[in-house]
Design a protein around this nucleic acid. Sequence first.
RNA 1: GUCCCCAUCGUCUAGCGGUCUAGGACGUCGCCCUUUCAAGGCGGCAACACGGGUUCGAUUCCCGUUGGGGACGCCA
Length: 472
Amino acid sequence: MSIVTRFAPSPTGFLHIGGTRTALFNWLFAKNMGGKFLLRIEDTDRERSTQEAVNAIFSGLRWLGLDWDGEAVFQFSRAPKHREVVNELLENGNAYYCYCSQEELAAMRDQAKAAGLAPRYNGYWRDRDSKQAPAGVKPVVRLKAPTEGKTVLEDLVQGTVVTCNTQLDDMILLRSDGTPTYMLSVVVDDHDMNVTHVIRGDDHLTNTFRQIQIYQALGWQIPKFGHIPLIHGPDGAKMSKRHGAVGVEAYKALGILPQTLCNYLLRLGWAHGDDEIIPTEKAVEWFNIEGIGRSPSRFDMNKLLNLNSHYLRQAENDKLIDSIAEFLPNNLSAKLSDSADYRQRLVIGINGLKQRAKTLAELATGAQFYLLDAPLPMNDKIKLLLSERESREILKKLTEALKVFNEWNEASLHILVKDFSNGLGIGLGNVAKVARAALTGSEISPSIFEIMQALGKQETLNRLKRCGQLVF
RNA sequence: GUCCCCAUCGUCUAGCGGUCUAGGACGUCGCCCUUUCAAGGCGGCAACACGGGUUCGAUUCCCGUUGGGGACGCCA
């Protein structure tokens, strides 16, 4: 039998980074086993579900390349089927109506807590006749769960986990307004979608015992479960808003590459020996559930950034140039797309640039001087440097030397400027510093010879000459 | 409060009884390379939470302690 996994997020916000890892593991497992990966939107909470959140899930998964098989299933649309199943349960005596009010339930929980027990419903209506029901109260439907014995979970990640049934109460299957609860919907949907492996966050572990009880009441085959540890923030607590970026779109906006995020998320709690750089193809080949660690791991932005600079350096230049557009100010990104000349500068210049950037955003910032027209913006330090008489002397002489030079490539320019510096007896570093300032408006940049080549002779001379004449 | 899970450098991890004077990566520190900054190369600092067992032998197995985390909704 072919395996089927699924990712089942609720559309109540952004696509959470933790959920993303869950999706990745499900996807990898399915791919590794030659099975299917399904997507189900758990939108049964009508109050909190939004279309915007659904879109965020779709676009986030697509961005990461975690494609799902078939159409996404919207859980709410299956409510009639869920009610049908509840009726079945009601008929065969595995479920019953409960008329307790919220106040009564709260009292029961307090009572149990006071007695040193888990807060739970005490089964008041379990064996009571509905004829005794208070008038005008709309009942909920509860599962008639076993009151003794144990429920056992053979978890793919956590191992064997056992819970006493006295710990669990009769969960609600149908709300008083007739809508199905999550606990029931997941079971019915996973069953109907033929899901064979439920891989999800650790926070669902205790839910699983309840869900197993539903499977048992229905006489359905129980899928295999694997509960992966949650991702924690740097402080060790579950990732939440106060930790900063929790949605994948935030990482996209930062200029993190999708392959970086996949690689990073995979290495959080899973390893393949000493391998750190694991491209998706390898991940699919190597992934296994047994390798998933059981302890939660903390999110480390530094390592993510380091990985990202690796993938940035490896990325194809054309793609990189295309993808920095959205990180550029509008006027510059327009220049990039409208003018082949400006783009051509980056075709060469991107090489030095991408070696220095940790994110696409940084790459875009670094690329600006290629797209800007003189006069370049300069800080006081640069202005001061360029206003010195020695600097302008160097610039003038350098302009003259370059004017008659025609081997316009990085290596030749390097030799020429080196000889030029020797001739002046001032050392390459001093010439480079001034040229860099004039060419880029900055004291930090890629190799000035690469920049000269990328800018072309005319623009190089233009920038050098301009600064040589500048008066501040 | 009740139940469950977890525990190797600051962080992510390798290790599945002897190969461990514990390996890799990020970060950090130093050196080299060098026109700046990166990248790269080389090297340093840095961990088996604690206490009991089991065993000829425990980082590895068992039990406790401590510490951390998660779950206890007519949310999902």
